[in-house]
Nucleic acid binder design. Structure first.
Length: 270
DNA sequence: ACTGGCACCTGGGCGC
DNA sequence: TGCGCCCAGGTGCCAG
């Protein structure tokens, strides 16, 4: 599920329910995630109070007096608030019980996600090398163009590198390249600055739109099953290989970059 | 320094 | 129905 819009939607969904709340207890049913669930969740988190939520790329950060709980949802993770009597389902790995009885429940079938403890987010190894936020100042065509100089890798792989820009996963990489009219195979270093301007704008547009739509499903984070399928009807290329291009009618082609599915229109994207 | 490929997991869908 | 195969929204790490 989670690309940047999903992570941001999760942050906005849980923020009003955790801010100002203290943690009553933590239950770890399965600690074998991408990295072992941090011991501090059980030694430091109980008794602490959440005072701030933040997102950096696809990492979610919840501040307490003693440090930050850092959460990554991996490929299949989700975080939602449930009432204390909600039955535990398979793959509900971690419960963080709040002082009002609600539970922040981490669910992750594939276990590619992570729950870590960090003292200082800005200097943490996983965060300090990350590229700019695509929706904040500092990310634009000039920046991308500059970073691409001398690079021979495919532009799709380039924009999916979190050291270049965070939060552009496979769906939105495909969609942004389509909107910008750029062929995904093109060498990053051989794309003109003007086209990077268009690409930066396309990345901002698809992410902003997805967050906007995701915002309408915020209620799902409390109670419901929290499985929004919102962006589907907006997709122009992702998952549409072999179907016709919505703009020109050409058959959409499929390929792969770094073992990730790529879909593009051979006529619109050059 | 770059780049491509692999690893970590489970579950769903498909063809036989 | 069952089995085996392929695929999946991420990303750190490794070898060449």
């Amino acid at each position: 599920m989670p690309e940047l819009p999903e992570v941001e939607t999760t942050r906005r969904g849980i923020a009003p329910h955790v801010l100002g709340r203290a943690v009553r207890a933590v239950t770890v049913r399965e600690s074998r995630l991408r990295w072992p669930v941090a011991e501090e969740l059980q030694t430091l988190l109980p008794g602490s109070r959440f005072s701030e939520t933040r997102r950096r790329g696809k990492y979610l950060l919840l501040k307490t007096e003693l440090g930050w709980l850092m959460i990554h949802l991996g490929m299949s993770g989700s975080l939602r608030l449930v009432s204390g009597d909600e039955p535990v389902k398979k793959h509900d790995h971690v419960d963080i019980e709040l002082d009002n009885g609600m539970i922040l429940r981490y669910h992750d079938p594939r276990r590619f996600g992570a729950l870590l403890w960090v003292r200082e987010p800005d200097s943490h190894a996983l965060l300090c090398e990350l590229g700019p936020e695509p929706l904040e100042p500092g990310f634009d065509g000039a920046y991308l163009h500059g970073r691409a100089q001398g690079k021979s890798l495919a532009i799709k792989s380039f924009i999916m590198d979190s050291h270049v820009v965070v939060g552009v996963g496979n769906i939105y990489a495909n969609e942004a390249l389509f909107r910008a009219g750029i062929h995904p195979d093109r060498a990053a270093g051989r794309v003109a600055k003007a086209r990077y301007e268009k690409l930066a704008e396309a990345i901002r547009a698809v992410l902003t739109e997805a967050i906007r739509i995701g915002g309408t499903t915020l209620r799902d984070f409390v109670g419901g099953d929290g499985a929004p399928g919102y962006f589907q009807q907006k997709l122009n290329v992702y998952g549409r290989g072999g179907q016709t291009c919505r703009v020109c009618g050409e058959l959409l082609k499929e390929s792969r970059h770094n073992n990730r599915a790529t879909v593009f229109c051979p006529r619109c994207q050059t």
